[in-house]
Design a protein around this nucleic acid. Sequence first.
DNA 1: GCAAAAGTGTTCGGGTTACACCCATGA
DNA 2: TCATGGGTGTAACCCGAACACTTTTGC
Lengths: 240, 240
Amino acid sequence: MSPTSANVSERSQEPPSLAISTVIFGLRPSEASGRPTLWLPLVRRIRQPYLGQWALPGGPLAPSESLQDAASRNLLETTGLAPRYLEQLYAFGGLHRSVGQRLVSIVYWALVQPDEAELTRESENVRWFRADRLERLAFDHNDIVEYALWRLRNKMEYGSIAYHLLGERFTLAQVREVYEAVLDKQLDPANFRRQLRATPHIEATDEYLTGTRHRPPRLYRYAGPVPDGSTRQSQAVRAP
Amino acid sequence: MSPTSANVSERSQEPPSLAISTVIFGLRPSEASGRPTLWLPLVRRIRQPYLGQWALPGGPLAPSESLQDAASRNLLETTGLAPRYLEQLYAFGGLHRSVGQRLVSIVYWALVQPDEAELTRESENVRWFRADRLERLAFDHNDIVEYALWRLRNKMEYGSIAYHLLGERFTLAQVREVYEAVLDKQLDPANFRRQLRATPHIEATDEYLTGTRHRPPRLYRYAGPVPDGSTRQSQAVRAP
DNA sequence: GCAAAAGTGTTCGGGTTACACCCATGA
DNA sequence: TCATGGGTGTAACCCGAACACTTTTGC
């Protein structure tokens, strides 16, 4: 008996079930241009509903863990990932986001650095996809990814967030490439570097990146805070 | 038998219960200065836990309603209020926010105009409180109100939001008073009015407010959008 | 030397801030 | 006429956009 065959009025009396999911963004070089682009890991559904379709990693909330802990644990179990940057995104609870059950999802979003992304346990059922070329996903997960992208872009126009997609050392041009990939627009290198140097928590190291066929750029380091479990502040509030 | 006497390991196996609550802000004149200040309606707990303490209006999520509908319905049932401005705030799910049960709350926040605020069914168990002088509330509701205040301030520094606290017609000085009350700082009247006039959706009417003992100020009208149920965008993203 | 990107200097213009000053009403 | 806020004008300042120019490497 498939879940959709359940009596509707009967089902509508059951309490809504609660799940925690996460949108994870990481950088990978585009196959075409080689420039960094946004990717995200998805897992294949191995049960109904949406059996066989790709979906955000997630799962139920265990009674003894916080929401953020549940997100972390589900992520680790399904993909092997343990992002340092993890924040709540939004709670989705529309009536028709799932078939056969009423489902409320509290969704988190995460950024992974290259060393973290390498920990992905890729398989037939776990794969990275380009964020801007997604097929049809399970549930309303296409909408959720779109919203997470909007949030990422919005937040990147402000704060100290791009570094959570880069490694420990980086050139200012690499940071600019991240901005250009995420915001999808060209930025003036000269002005961009001045702005970055003016922001706090960006420290110059005395190292340089060699091996390029031009003047070796200086390497920088991010020395700022990473949001912990209690960081609600970074959710913010700007008019559309 | 009180709820806290339940066996802990037994309780920890039950699924977390889900509730929807709302922080509602409205303006009332301060008793002392007469200037507008932020107030919010609270309801008294009439059952355990936290029996007798004041709490945010809220209740369970019915299986056949969306999250926002649940917020609206709970609000109407407990306080009589039906705010036009209603948005999701955050999902709170810490392990120890309630005693005797694991509770996850999806919290909304609302702004009411004076005509809406008048609909409050005040009683022994429903009352308005000054937002900046709250006593100890049930659950973690003090923290939630603080966060909602942070969001309100943050959002007000940006967008078209103050009008949702005022009536249909208002003077620019009234808008400035709202900003000053919420942000708790003085603003230059001359510059403030120029900024407002430059923002969209603010239309001058040909009416003037009379009865003051100085030059009659012009009345304005807000002609912009109000967030509907699907408005996720207004959640935004600015670094702390 | 040449190409290419790193890195610096300078100008321009729009927007915010500070503050002087005039206007229209009630009493 | 005076007090009080409404409303206008203006100069200083700040900051980002645009872009010319110098520097340092690989080839």
